[in-house]
Amino acid sequence: MANIALFPGSFDPFTKGHEDIVRRGLQLFDEVIIGIGRNASKQRYFALEQMTAWIEETFRDTPQVRVVAYDDLTANVARKLGARFLLRGLRNTTDFEYENGIAQVNRYVYEEVETVFLITSPHLAPISSSIIRDLHRYGQPVEAFLPYSIELRDESKESRTTT
């Protein structure tokens, strides 16, 4: 039986910190599935389809990684995908407090799932998706924080600045 981990998140955007967690997770798991969850209470900054394409491009040479989008409880998705592990990154103690509660609920929904936390690599710890969105929104370069290029391909930036 393969050890499959689901790495869930909104990934808006998917950062070098996220990439680092996935690549390190591959040292522990046979397959890592990046699950982009839909959150009805949040408006995405980057289109889901575009983010999926960027993440797939990032891992195009890594067949043990795949990307799925979902609109369900993470634990239910893990069960459906045959993932017995949830992979999560922790940047700081605040992340731990938040993630601990989620891990407990996921275990309640799907008893066989284990959440595995990896501590973010120190040089990537300051990176957060919300900071990157703010920088991008106001025209600052964000390439240093992302494992793919968005500046030339992101048409959403133009649509936000002209409306």
Rank of each mutant, 00 (worst) to 15 (best):
P122V: 13
N92R: 09
P126Q: 12
S129Q: 13
G101Q: 15
S156N: 07
Y148R: 09
F96C: 05
E112C: 04
N92C: 13
S128R: 08
E112M: 08
P122W: 09
S149R: 14
F117P: 04
R91Y: 01
L135P: 02
L146R: 02
E151A: 14
L118N: 06
T93I: 11
R91I: 04
E151Q: 13
V109S: 01
I132D: 09
T115C: 06
S128K: 10
Q104L: 15
V109T: 09
Y138M: 10
N106T: 00
A103Y: 02
I132F: 10
L86Q: 03
L87A: 01
R91F: 01
S121P: 01
R84G: 13
T120P: 03
R137V: 01
E143P: 01
Q140C: 13
S130V: 05
T93Y: 07
P126D: 09
T115F: 05
F96L: 14
T94V: 11
F117Q: 09
R153E: 05
A83K: 02
L152C: 00
L87H: 02
E155M: 06
G139C: 09
E111P: 15
P141I: 02
R84W: 03
V116Y: 06
E99P: 02
P147R: 06
E151W: 07
L152R: 13
V105M: 15
I131C: 11
A83L: 08
T115R: 11
F96E: 05
L124M: 12
I127V: 15
I127E: 09
V142H: 04
F96R: 06
P147A: 06
S128E: 09
T93E: 11
V105A: 11
A83W: 05
P126A: 12
I132Q: 06
E97M: 05
G101C: 05
I102Q: 08
E151N: 05
S156Y: 04
L87Q: 01
V109M: 15
Q104H: 12
